[in-house]
Nucleic acid binder design. Structure first.
Lengths: 262, 262
DNA sequence: AAGTGGTCTAGACCACACT
DNA sequence: GTGTGGTCTAGACCACTTA
């Protein structure tokens, strides 16, 4: 008698054109979708599936790798393969940079996470002057060198976002923007104090698979894309005063925007 | 003599802890990043890499599968493994639903694609009444049944987007919105003619790996995520009059938004 | 026909996690 | 130790592409 209750998973169809490993992946996916395996739950082990389906181990592993690519499951060495739980999501609203949110002591990230009952952290602080990349230079209006501020955001210990702000040196050098901690309200508050009254932001959004670097920095599971967001801040004279390049774990975010109909 | 110019790819480091297939993937990735293999170009065949590195075929295939997961390469049966070309990107600006864009005869998609020099198509037209999903019902304010309009957008023959609009029956039934072709300016123009003057839109954006269904519908290569966009249209009385659920091939889109700083 | 990737087998040894 | 997944081998046969 198979250790798998035969109800959970069916048999293979030898007449089917569909590859065996796909059939197995299909059955596992369906079982997950139907809630037979719940979030965080362990799937049958490779050995059990080898036994159940009468196939070789590589075939079973191939099935798992399909599901991993879909972001449905993740493997833990020595433990098993588990249905990937959907982490809590951070909702970013389009008014998140409204001036009224800058009046408080803490950064927007901290305030919002506290409110959501999560434990926020910011680390990997690096602030330095460097050569502007082609792209950043273009966005900032042909500046050669910039102040770069890099930081990583964590929620309940999990890295969710890595961001770099770039500012022209003539704006940022020697100000508190060049300090590790720019103070209450963040750099946007400082920019306004320095006379760069902000007018609007532009955000560009892409989604793609992470680079190996990004996988490491954000500790991304396989099958999790990143959202790449590039924000440019414009002052009331129409000058681009900051570019913020952000890479987010896509499973941790929902972005939300308001568009006028006019 | 190896058929691979030894310059392109290096040797393995047997002392390294890094798995052999990862080392091979690293070298191929680096070669691609450095432009030694250009977009659309063929990588060495599995057999050549087996020969070059002195490993088994499965190891080489494993390397390829890493790069496929990253969306860097794609395999074509019988032909080879190729550096995935980055397709032309559709830029969606946040004013794309501005009223002035609705005054023309064609749909926004067609107009914009024509302007960009691409050949646009819309297919998979389906218009029918159906039960509202839990989510759609919530967004539309507890409606039971809706009119659903499904369509797929193609650019130069490639499917890039699959969208479904949901409208409350009391608004859409019996109007030209329920026709396969709603006429110039699309359903937003019709809504306004019917007295539902639009006030604003809300868009929610997520990114994730596609379901097998979405892979089929959008003919997605492996390693390409989707952008899932849910837009709700509000009229000037604050009523949600339409929900549009859109799944886009992430490699074909850049979304762009303007945010007020106030 | 020759070359390519797609699937599959039946082993092997290793590293990690639990008890 | 036992069970788990991680890596790797050395084959096999198949399906698709190109010539």
């Amino acid at each position: 008698m198979p250790s798998l209750s035969s109800g959970l998973l069916g048999d293979l169809d030898p007449t089917s054109d569909r590859a065996v490993f796909r059939q197995i992946a299909d059955q596992l996916r369906e079982a997950i979708d139907r809630g037979r395996f719940k979030e965080g739950e362990k799937l049958p082990s490779e050995a059990e599936l080898v036994e159940h389906y009468g196939v070789s181990r590589m075939t079973v592993r191939n099935s798992f790798s399909v599901l991993q690519g879909e972001g449905l499951v993740h493997a833990e060495h020595g433990k098993g393969v588990f249905v990937r739980p959907r982490p809590p999501v951070r909702r970013l609203a389009s008014d998140r940079f409204a001036r009224r949110h800058r009046e408080q002591g803490k950064s927007a990230f901290i305030v919002e996470a506290d409110a959501a009952g999560s434990h926020p952290q910011v680390d990997s602080l690096e602030v330095k002057e460097e050569k502007a990349s082609q792209d950043v230079s273009t966005r900032l209006g042909s500046v050669r060198r910039v102040l770069a501020r890099r930081r990583r955001y964590l929620l309940d210990g999990r890295p969710v976002e890595f961001a770099t702000s770039y500012l022209p040196l003539d704006i940022a050098r020697g100000t508190s923007i060049a300090e590790p901690n720019p103070g209450p309200g963040g750099i946007y508050a400082r920019l306004e104090e320095l006379g760069h009254r902000l007018d609007h932001f532009e955000e560009e959004i892409r989604a793609r698979m992470p680079s190996p670097d990004e996988v490491r920095t954000l500790r991304l599971a396989s099958g999790v894309p990143v959202i790449h967001l590039i924000r440019t801040a414009f002052d009331q004279e129409g000058r681009a005063v900051e570019v913020c390049d952000t890479v987010m774990a896509a499973d941790a975010y929902v972005l939300s925007y308001q568009l006028p109909a006019t």
